[in-house]
Design a protein around this nucleic acid. Structure first.
Lengths: 350, 350
DNA sequence: TTGAAAGCGTTACCAG
DNA sequence: CTGGTAACGCTTTCAA
């Protein structure tokens, strides 16, 4: 493996000059720079990042903490991050965070505690105060996408508003028996993404005069109901079979907390012989790339943009200038938009 | 940031002893070891991996090259890798490889060329001779999962056999008009995963006396046909609309090269008013976690096991003993099994 | 503009 | 079993 001293010798300069010529820091005569670069490529020299970061304190490496890679939102955010990092010359170290348990603290206390990453991007994780404290103590920039926890830099859509928007769309169409397929923890963790969406939903249905019902309530009456399930296609499917199983109790519209849940719900409806949107209107959240295929009305967001932006924010924070607000638009929520397709319509007459 | 010299001072020993005590290499009196460990945890010391790898040449970091994170197979393999690596104390650096273009060579020539990873795991990539040469020149262990290219360590299922098995299942049921929804490149890259599956399919249909047909052939006659599409749900959907669009040309059974394609195909069939399996039998490949939800017959494999195993192989190669065969079972293919569900049946009479 | 030399934080060798 | 010391490969003062 050629070292910088080899390059220096071949180019007839000192290590110092070779370093300056190759890294672009400090002034070097154009002619010598060329000679050094030529020598380097001749022997296939590539700088050792370890040696460099040992002295500079920078690793050119960003840690990404993510709970799933196999859910569309998360995978797509990761994709956006990776692409942006690649073109900035940064490495991405992936930490697939288990929901809880000893491995989770291992990620925070061991892996992230070492000096291997310049910054951390955390996607869709509800961070505990202790975890946040640990990260901040290392003085590494932390950028969050979604999730919850009192952190300085967070990029996210307005999840409460998403809930309001979805409910309003259904109310507007004239539905009065509406269910919300919420993510796990919606009721117990009000600041989490599922919690905020559920709260927005309930606020809107309440404002419209719909009472909150439980599954045991008398059938057929107007009202809103919230059911929790895994935010995945099977989650939506299972919950859907349950929710739609009793004709008398059946809502005429459902707001699913994610498009993947909505897909599962639609399949459950079909399995039960229901037609969407004639018997059931469905609206989801995400703007999943398969939403068109299911003809699903959804509240779209742009995960890959969020990923790209998170990287830009992190790099900006790394670039010093600690005073300047690193967040674009002073931390305004990321945009969402209602995409109306064929899965929502007015309820059947009667 | 506390350094090892701080630990040494606090414990009243030399740096050398402190290092030995903490890393476990070399002999240290049990009593001093305890004192050092105690001192380390007291000041929250964590070794700098950069400094360590500078001298040992080992980074405790594995590079993973992957073309998608958002396809189930790839995401699940990644998950298995990550989990295994985490418990072995290794980091995972992710390279989301663009299919082609300058960014692709950048991954190989710049990112992987640096000394930042101890080994590389490559998932589902058709490696060129040049790319393989580059990797081998760095003398880093390379483990491939799927994909193609003449590399020493490869873990994969027998994709040719998968094609045979799928075709045989359909033939056995009595189908004589069978289509194969193949991945892109199946016909042009015979050693690739799509190529092998298609070859197996054609071998079996040919042996059964079914002629290979093109889309323009006279309708209704027995035969096998191969259509290429993206190995995703939308890919299967679009191709399905095309393939099933003309009633006269319609096959009675389709072998989709992945479960995700099969899901799309099933939706296309439903969209066209066809009933599965009455009008159309469908078999996929993967054992996708949603296969049950679509009641899909499939040839299941275990991506997360493949991921786990790839890590074990890589670590074994790293552990010296270059002579011993690092591959389990002398490189025998990974297991697959036919899971019969409701999407395949005998063709309708007539 | 260039060079010499002093680190960065470890581990590994060689004495003791 | 332990301590001193020399690397590892780079960047960065400080002088020239």
């Amino acid at each position: 493996m050629p070292a910088i001293s080899d390059v220096a010798r071949l180019a007839g300069v000192s290590k110092a000059t070779a370093s300056r010529a190759l890294s672009g820091r400090g002034h070097v005569a154009e002619q010598t720079r060329k000679r050094v670069v030529q020598a380097a490529s001749e022997i296939g020299y590539i700088a050792s990042p370890d040696a460099a970061s040992l002295v500079t304190g920078r690793t050119k490496n960003i840690g990404v903490v993510i709970p799933f890679v196999n859910r569309w939102f998360f995978g797509t955010v990761l994709d956006g991050i990776e692409r942006t990092l690649l073109s900035a010359g940064y490495d991405l170290t992936l930490y697939n965070l288990p929901i809880a348990g000893p491995d989770r603290s291992r990620v925070f206390d061991f892996f992230l505690a070492r000096k291997r990453v310049d910054a951390v991007i955390v996607i869709g994780v509800d961070l505990s105060a202790g975890e946040i404290g640990g990260l901040e103590r290392r003085e590494k920039p932390v950028v969050c996408i979604g999730g919850s926890g009192e952190v300085t830099a967070r990029l996210s859509i307005d999840d409460h508003d998403v809930g309001v928007l979805a409910a309003s769309h259904l109310l507007h169409l004239g539905h009065t028996r509406i269910a919300h397929l919420a993510g796990i923890g919606a009721m117990s963790a009000p600041r989490s993404v599922p919690g905020l969406r559920a709260a927005g939903f309930l606020e809107a249905t309440d404002a419209a005069g719909l009472p909150l019902r439980s599954e045991d309530d008398p059938a057929g009456a107007p009202g809103a109901i919230v059911v929790e399930a895994a935010m995945s296609m099977p989650g939506g499917f299972e919950a859907g079979l349950q929710l739609l199983g009793h004709p008398a109790h059946r809502p005429t519209a459902v707001f699913a907390a994610s498009d993947e849940m909505a897909f599962g719900l639609i399949r459950a409806a079909e399995r039960l012989g229901l037609s969407v949107p004639r018997d059931l209107s469905v609206i989801g959240v995400d703007g999943h790339e398969h939403a068109g295929l299911f003809d699903l009305t959804t509240i779209a967001q742009s995960p890959s943009d969020q990923g790209r932006l998170a990287v830009e924010v992190a790099l900006r924070m790394l670039g010093g200038d600690a005073q300047a607000d690193p967040l674009p638009d002073s931390g305004a929520p990321m945009p969402t938009r209602l995409v109306v397709r064929g899965s929502t319509s007015r309820p059947a007459a009667g």
